[in-house]
Design a protein around this nucleic acid. Structure first.
Lengths: 164, 164
DNA sequence: ACCAATCGTTGTTGACGTCAATGGTTGTCT
DNA sequence: AGACAACCATTGACGTCAACAACGATTGGT
């Protein structure tokens, strides 16, 4: 296959190659890629923490949003959480099966089904609140308290201007 | 829409409910969830920018890592990039099909196959470098230059101690 | 010469996002 | 009133993606 006439070493050159070139840089030089990778890890940690309760991060996000609104049609959930309407169906199905939320018909519009947080849902949020904090602490472990606030504020601004 | 003052309102209560409770808070109060959501958006933007070249963010990350190492066995790629070894196979297959990388047998170990960046791969990195910068700019749009540096530094520390 | 460990590979499973299409319902326009 | 477009929740299909088990080939240790 390959003529190995050159004195190639087994291990690849560990040192930098053409590091002078600006386009020759490591992955960590990109803020976007860092966000992508940390987002993956954050999701993994969240799902692992919520695994014992049988739910996933998406369910948790839906519950948390419901806690701030006290009832919303599924269309609103889709827009606010950024999930496809078809995805909301399955999520609410799961949560309703566990009696954490309840589907109620909207009085004025029989097409809509308003999802409200049940009492068990409030209890669930109260119980998993500490686990949620643990995940954030583990993620931002090497940062000081002040740095965490700074990071949170920056992320918040990026996220908010994201949706107009 | 229809917000009468009647006890049974169609629309859910728009105001805060039990906002006094600490576990009753919005999604954006969680740094972990913010990271998760921004990570998703970052990945979408990256993939959209790379779509015209037929590659995805994973391929791009692999190429960029190869640029800093000049050749690595697939096992190293798996560990460094955080992807499963089985995922590396498909990625290298795609890149090799486009002649961006090359699989070379390791002289001392016939199990290993060292993946090296081909000349076309370097050209590809040079050409897509600007697109990568555009994505980061779009993501961190609302932030000032100094704030972007702060965010990048914070994310870098979180990411680095992650695999320490 | 055995045996455990390693490397790349294949296959499978489940979660996930996206889009098209449907049944039921509402509002509008004439 | 009736016709018609728009809306809502739901279902289904398709492709992407991560995580895991299992395998053949190879290596190193004893």
């Amino acid at each position: 296959m390959t003529a190995h006439g050159t004195p190639t070493t087994d291990a690849p050159h560990p040192g930098p190659v053409d590091a002078d070139e600006p386009w020759m840089r490591g992955l960590h030089a990109d803020t976007g890629y860092l966000l992508y990778r940390l987002g993956l890890r954050s999701g993994q940690l969240f799902n692992a923490a919520l695994q014992e309760s049988g739910l996933r991060l998406r369910h948790y996000a839906l519950l948390r949003y419901l806690a701030t609104v006290e009832g919303a049609p599924q269309r609103d959930l889709s827009e606010r959480l950024g999930y496809d309407p078809s995805a909301i169906v399955g999520l609410v199905d799961d949560l309703e099966r566990l009696h954490l939320v309840e589907r109620r018909p909207a009085p004025t519009d029989r097409r809509r089904r308003i999802v409200v947080l049940a009492e068990a849902g409030r209890t669930y949020l109260r119980d998993t609140d500490e686990a949620s904090h643990r995940v954030t602490d583990e993620l931002t472990g090497p940062l000081s308290e002040e740095e965490r606030d700074t990071l949170h504020a920056l992320l918040l601004r990026v996220a908010q201007t994201d949706r107009g």
